[in-house]
Design a protein around this nucleic acid. Structure first.
Length: 430
DNA sequence: TCTGGGGTCCTAGGACCC
DNA sequence: TCTGGGGTCCTAGGACCC
């Protein structure tokens, strides 16, 4: 009988190329082909690099101050992180992708899995090329697409799409075709879920390639790498263990923290910062329609500085879950009072919310009236709407401070082209 | 002078219960 | 001399992701 190959299940991983860099290039096209980097918050480390920069050997995470020389020598263009811009462009990319499959998982700001159903090799590649071309045309963001029968193999295929096929930007791993050959040339640490620890473990046992890993005995992997490792193994064999998560479950913890632009010493300045983080965390909470029953606050001096060190964390169970910005600011400030010590130069603080429940469990306290609760909840519904429409911090609590002199450094910030009326690009000036 | 900010899942062990 | 057998919940710590 001739070989009739039935169409196989296809999962695609679509990944935006050097996403933050690509976002900056959308509004400054002259930067295409030029070396560009984007820095983390507070202009701390390098978190995105254009291909040109990667080729020059600059590592991800390098401290900015340590690569000034490199930047000068190679004429690298530097940007501070502009999350308003990246978030908005991400949304546009995801909207575009959602037209290509009814089943999609948004995995991160720059990645999504698409269930393509059953497709043969020819159809599959043509479809992927169309996705890629449409996203680039509609959003300006270049993407790479990896296709395989499982999420793990799609992820791996994406790696090779970037590596080996920068022109087409599409690569597939097919169990009926190229899988062994590809796994053989893939270093084991390229597998999704293998970090530095597991890499070291596997190397110690002579396992260097994805192929060697795939062919390990199940029990060996289960014993040393838990069920997580076993799932990776099975996924590499083409057996799906990781489902597409189309609706993201609500977060179980919400953290809002930042390093300050310059060290803070006074309680008042810290109180402003903590109030501001609490307010941001509360907004995230309301966005997923939750309330929190647990608040924690931490603060820390700069561990890199040669000066007296102090850090502390305190948490506090609320009498009842809440999503009110006022309440959460009040509780967070209360925590801060307990751990603040005079005489230190603080570099960072943060607010954590936990024991997150559905908003319907937001209950009344003994001394609150139903009126108070619905007043806060109506008020913050409006605050959230106004800030979504007119930009963050259009309306805010006075305790967050007005000038916010402790704000992080962002010396190389591009305009918020798409999310602020004042910064919209101008095509023709009279 | 200058070193980010979010998240997830899994396991082992202890406390406690019947 | 011989001292059970389950179950749940919680926490800390480890590993990983973008």
């Amino acid at each position: 009988m001739s070989c009739i190959r039935s169409d196989s299940r296809c999962v695609a991983l679509v990944d935006c190329n050097n996403f933050y860099v690509s976002c900056e290039r959308v509004f400054e096209p002259a930067l295409k082909g030029k070396p560009v980097i984007v820095l983390s918050n507070n202009d701390g480390n390098v978190v995105a690099r254009s291909n040109e920069v990667k080729k020059l050997g600059l590592k991800f995470g390098a401290p900015f101050h340590a690569c000034r020389e490199f930047i000068k020598t190679h004429g690298v263009r530097v940007f501070s992180s502009n999350y308003a811009l990246y978030g908005d462009l991400s949304h546009r990319v995801m909207e575009t992708l959602s037209m290509f499959s009814p089943h999609m998982e948004i995995y991160s700001i720059d990645e999504a899995f698409l269930d393509l159903g059953r497709m043969g090799p020819t159809e599959r590649d043509a479809y992927a090329r169309r996705i890629r071309q449409t996203v680039e045309q509609w959003t300006g963001i270049p993407v790479s697409i990896g296709i395989g029968p499982t999420k793990t193999l799609a992820k791996l295929a994406n790696h090779w799409a970037k590596h080996d096929c920068p022109q087409t930007g599409v690569f597939h791993i097919d169990p009926a075709d190229n899988i062994d050959e590809i796994l053989k040339k893939t270093p084991v640490e390229e597998i999704w879920g293998i970090g530095p620890r597991y890499k070291a473990l596997l190397y110690r046992h002579g396992v260097h390639t994805a192929l060697q890993f795939r062919d390990l005995p199940d029990a060996w992997v289960r014993a040393r790498m838990t069920v997580t490792g076993l799932r990776m193994l099975l996924e590499l064999r083409g057996i799906p263990c990781l489902a597409l998560e189309e609706v993201s479950p609500p977060r179980k913890g919400i953290v809002s923290s930042r390093s300050f632009g310059a060290p803070l010493e006074s309680f008042d300045a810290l109180r402003e910062a903590v109030a501001s983080y609490a307010s941001r965390a509360a907004a995230k909470l309301r966005q997923q329609n939750s309330a929190a029953g647990f608040v924690g606050v931490f603060l820390a001096t700069n561990p890199f500085a040669d000066e007296p060190q102090y850090s502390n964390f305190v948490s506090y169970r609320l009498p009842l879950p809440t999503s009110s910005g006022f309440m959460l600011i009040r509780h967070a400030t209360h925590c801060l009072k307990q751990i603040y010590r005079e005489g230190f130069r603080y570099k960072k603080a943060g607010v954590m919310l936990a024991e997150i429940v559905d908003r319907q469990f937001e209950a009344l306290g003994l001394f609150e009236t139903e009126r108070d609760l619905s007043r806060d909840s109506r008020l913050f519904a409006i605050v959230d709407r106004v800030n979504a429409r007119y930009g963050a911090r259009t309306v805010f609590c006075a305790s967050e401070g007005i000038s916010q002199s402790w704000q992080m450094r962002r010396s190389f910030l591009s305009p918020s082209y798409t999310t602020s009326w004042n910064e919209i690009p101008i095509a023709f000036a009279r």
